[in-house]
Amino acid sequence: MQALGIDVLFKGINMQRLLGGLWISLRISLIAVAFSIVLGLIVGVLMAGDNPVIKSVTRVYLEIVRVMPQMVLLFIVFFGTTRVFGWNIEAEIASIIVFTFWGTAEMADLVRGALISIPKHQYESAAALGMEQGQIYRHIIIPQTLRRLIPLSINLVTRMIKTTSLAMMIGVVEVLKVGQQIIEANRKSSPNAAFGVYACVFVLYFAACWPISMFSKYLERKWS
């Protein structure tokens, strides 16, 4: 075990520290996902509408998010705003802002996709049955949209968790950074710690994301 550097994980409170780091990552992604879902629902409904101004503005927004690496956005918010406006944004807050900005676009696109995937005859048939506008949405459109939307938005959670690993690059002390610190601190006593610790971080991310993506796959199969 010494040779693989796995012993380091069981020394002192190293494992707790790693789990604490993972919790920081999860907290950032859960907060960002919560904001993204709410904002994404609003933007997505607007995008599915007919207003040409809103449509072109949201298209530009979506395209920016589509082509800009999240890391570039992180740098802009973290370093750029300090320089231009003199704001001193905490790294964790900056990550939440950026991931929300990114997640909202993703969510909005999912909402728009789900909304326009409902065939027109669903509206017409419901109207032909004598339903009112409110009833059509409540009983016909929204349940079908949600069935398409929920598995995809659960998937967004795993993508968000994976993306939070980038927060380390602007100085958030999350699981990867904690791993680095542990390796540094044990450089003398177990020089091979890098293998064991990074393998452990790998497994921790997998343990966090895999059940969620399995659940989303299960829902997708069940509801399709």
Partner: peptide, 11 residues
């Protein structure tokens, strides 16, 4: 598919 590239690269 369930781990970030950054972690994969570090490993």
């Amino acid at each position: 598919r369930n781990t970030p590239l950054l972690v994969q690269l570090f490993f």
